[in-house]
């Protein structure tokens, strides 16, 4: 895997995550797609398992560092290391376990897997933060509302993933990801 290229792509994805998500939000809601999960899904579809887990962990840590959580009843925020890292590793593991039965060169596959990864991330994050809000952190957190919003965002991420696939799949060789030659290659070339 070409690590430098991956770092560059991850950097751009993190920048887009910070800046474009509010602009892409549906109406007045916070339902918005995740660019980072699309990149993670691409890597998880084609890279070696250990590289996938490391990538998930590092991307998750970066997202944790960039995410400021509001403290309840105080105009203050905090950053917590770990939740996204764990959630991303779980999501990557999910993609690793199903990728062998998927037609990976089909753009829709990236969308579907991105949606599954985002769902897994959402469930893991909501679980962790709900436990934290019960146990020891005064974060402004509503499990039901967050779960609904994040599940809807996961579907939105799937749609974005399907669209981004047209740019990301051709980018895969640049990232050093080996797309195996299968019988589907002819059909995929159309994309």
């Amino acid at each position: 895997m070409n690590k430098l290229a991956l770092v560059l792509v991850a950097w751009v994805a993190l920048g887009l995550e910070l800046s474009l998500r509010p602009a892409l939000a549906l109406g007045a809601t916070t339902i918005s797609p995740s660019f980072v999960i699309c990149i993670l899904t691409l890597v998880a579809m084609f890279a070696q398992p250990s590289a996938v887990r490391w990538t998930a962990l590092l991307l998750g840590l970066a997202v944790d560092l960039l995410t400021a959580l509001p403290i309840a009843n105080a105009a203050s925020d905090t950053r917590i290391v770990g939740p996204s890292a764990i959630a991303f590793v779980l999501a990557a593991q999910l993609v690793l376990s199903v990728r062998s039965v998927m037609m990976r060169r089909n753009p829709l596959t990236l969308g579907v897997l991105a949606m599954l990864a985002a769902l897994a991330t959402a469930i893991a994050l909501v679980t962790v933060f709900t436990v934290r809000s019960w146990m020891f952190d005064p974060i402004a957190w509503s499990a039901t509302s967050e779960l609904w919003t994040r599940c809807a965002s996961a579907v939105y991420t799937g749609v974005l993933g399907s669209l981004l696939a047209f740019a990301l799949l051709p980018l895969a060789p640049v990232l050093g990801l080996k797309i195996e030659t299968t019988m589907m290659a002819g059909r995929a070339a159309k994309y």
Binding site: G82, A85, V128
Partner: peptide, 18 residues
């Protein structure tokens, strides 16, 4: 690394991480 993240995510309060 994953173990460390699990500990940080589930055990260490935010006020100790801030």
């Amino acid at each position: 690394a994953i173990g460390a993240c699990v500990v940080l995510a589930l055990v260490v309060p935010a006020r100790w991480q801030r």
